[in-house]
């Protein structure tokens, strides 16, 4: 979304235009849901959390100063929600392992035609589930179209170099976990 259009949309939402907020939801629901679903990996919980993100956006719009892009602010909210959820799961004693029998969140793609490829993708999802929540979010966000290192750094309030380091460590860990 262009910055000018973003500002106009935010202003319309602040004026109580329900249609404008629906536009905002329609514009960002794919990104928000994909980020959360890849980080949380429980589809039904991801739906609830994605809805919570938009409710937080609605409550926070009057306080959004527009210093950062709307998308950056939304990434920040998504990150906070994922971290809080991860904290609640840790308190509840949830554990994950490569032998976790829960089905990973994935949509069958045209490329998944051979069993070895399917198995590798399944192992990848389980390996990603082993990563710390922040690394999982970075991996999910970076490999979604249009989410740049700079956007992530601004959203998570981290130096750019730290974002890259976390991401590379995550990929190193994935490489080790996927070794036969």
């Amino acid at each position: 979304m262009e910055p000018v259009n973003e500002r106009e949309l935010v202003e319309r939402c602040r004026r109580g235009d329900e249609g404008a907020f629906q536009e905002l939801v329609d514009g960002y629901k794919d990104l928000v849901f994909a980020l959360i679903a890849r980080t949380i990996q429980d589809r039904s919980r991801a739906e609830d959390l994605a809805q919570d993100v938009f409710l937080r956006i609605h409550r926070g719009l009057p306080y959004f100063r527009g210093e950062a892009r709307l998308s950056t602010w939304i990434y920040r909210i998504v990150a906070n929600v994922c971290v809080q959820e991860r904290g609640q799961q840790a308190n509840a004693g949830a554990t994950l392992s490569l032998d976790d029998t829960r089905a990973p969140v994935r949509t069958p793609a045209a490329a998944d035609r051979q069993f070895s490829d399917l198995e590798l993708r399944d192992r990848l999802e389980k390996a990603i589930a082993q990563l710390p929540a922040q690394q999982r979010l970075l991996v999910a966000a970076h490999y979604l179209q249009g989410v740049r290192y700079e956007d992530l750094a601004e959203a998570l309030r981290m130096p750019l170099g730290t974002v890259k380091t976390h991401l590379f460590r995550a990929k190193q860990q994935l490489r080790r976990l996927l070794e036969p």
Binding site: V25, A37, E47, T107
Partner: peptide, 18 residues
């Protein structure tokens, strides 16, 4: 990682949010 298909929200997601 690049070829992972992004999970899509359910069809009535926007309606549920509203």
């Amino acid at each position: 990682l690049r070829s992972r298909v992004a999970p899509a929200p359910p069809a009535n997601f926007s309606a549920r949010v509203m």
